[in-house]
Amino acid sequence: MLLWGNAHAAPPDAAREQALVRMVRQDCGSCHGMRLTGGLGPALTREALADVPLESLAAVIFHGRPGTPMPPWRAMLSEPEARWIAQRLLQGFPEEMVKAP
């Protein structure tokens, strides 16, 4: 489990938030479905995660699930970023922001 010693660290800035949204939509979406409604992995919709505690979801994102296809993302994310993603999933994950030309 995560210790969250720095759970109160500053949230990601706007540019990092965009990168995290893109990562979830593309990388996580490759298993959980591009709309996060399920695929190889379970759905990551607000409804599907309604009974999942925030800390548990963040821990799965950060550490993965040994013995399953769910990899740990700790090489690409900090603990506060994993928590930020978990919070957004529980609220209903935002759409990827497309930059205007």
Results as ranks from 00 to 15, higher is better:
Leu40Pro: 02
Arg35His: 12
Thr45Asp: 14
Ala82Asn: 05
Gly29Pro: 06
Leu89Cys: 02
Leu77Ser: 02
Gly92Tyr: 04
Met76Ile: 08
Gly64Gln: 09
Val52Thr: 15
Leu49Val: 04
Gly33Phe: 01
Glu95Pro: 05
Pro94Lys: 11
Ala58Glu: 09
Thr68Ser: 14
Pro66Trp: 00
Cys31Phe: 00
Leu40Ser: 10
Arg25Ser: 09
Val98Tyr: 04
Gln26Leu: 10
Phe93Val: 09
Glu95Phe: 00
Pro69Glu: 08
Arg83Leu: 14
Val52Tyr: 04
Gln87Cys: 01
Leu44Asp: 14
Trp73Ser: 03
Val52Phe: 03
Asp51Lys: 06
Ile85Gly: 02
Asp27Tyr: 06
Val24Met: 04
Arg88Val: 01
Gln91Tyr: 02
Leu44Phe: 14
Thr45Trp: 05
Pro42Thr: 11
Ser78Gly: 12
Met23Phe: 13
Glu81Ala: 03
His32Leu: 06
Cys31Leu: 01
Pro53Cys: 01
Ala48Met: 13
Gly41Ile: 06
Pro66Ala: 11
Val52Trp: 00
Met34Arg: 15
Val60Lys: 10
Met70Gln: 10
Trp73Asp: 04
Pro69Phe: 00
Ala50Cys: 03
Ser78Phe: 00
Gly92His: 10
Leu36Glu: 12
Ser56Pro: 00
Glu96Ile: 09
Ser78Val: 06
Leu57Ser: 04
Glu95Leu: 12
Gln87Val: 08
Glu79Phe: 00
Trp84Cys: 04
Pro72Trp: 01
Leu49Ser: 03
Leu40Phe: 09
Pro94Cys: 03
Val60Thr: 14
Arg22Asn: 11
Phe93Met: 05
Ile61Gln: 06
Arg83Thr: 10
Gly41His: 07
Gln91Ser: 06
Ser30Gln: 15
Ile61Glu: 07
Ser78Thr: 15
Arg22Gln: 12
Gly29Ser: 09
Leu40Tyr: 09
Pro94Tyr: 03
Leu36Gln: 09
Arg88Trp: 00
Ala82Phe: 01
Ala82Glu: 08
Arg46Ser: 08
Phe62Val: 05
Arg65Pro: 03
Ile61Phe: 02
Ala58Met: 06
Glu47Asn: 12
Gln87Asp: 05
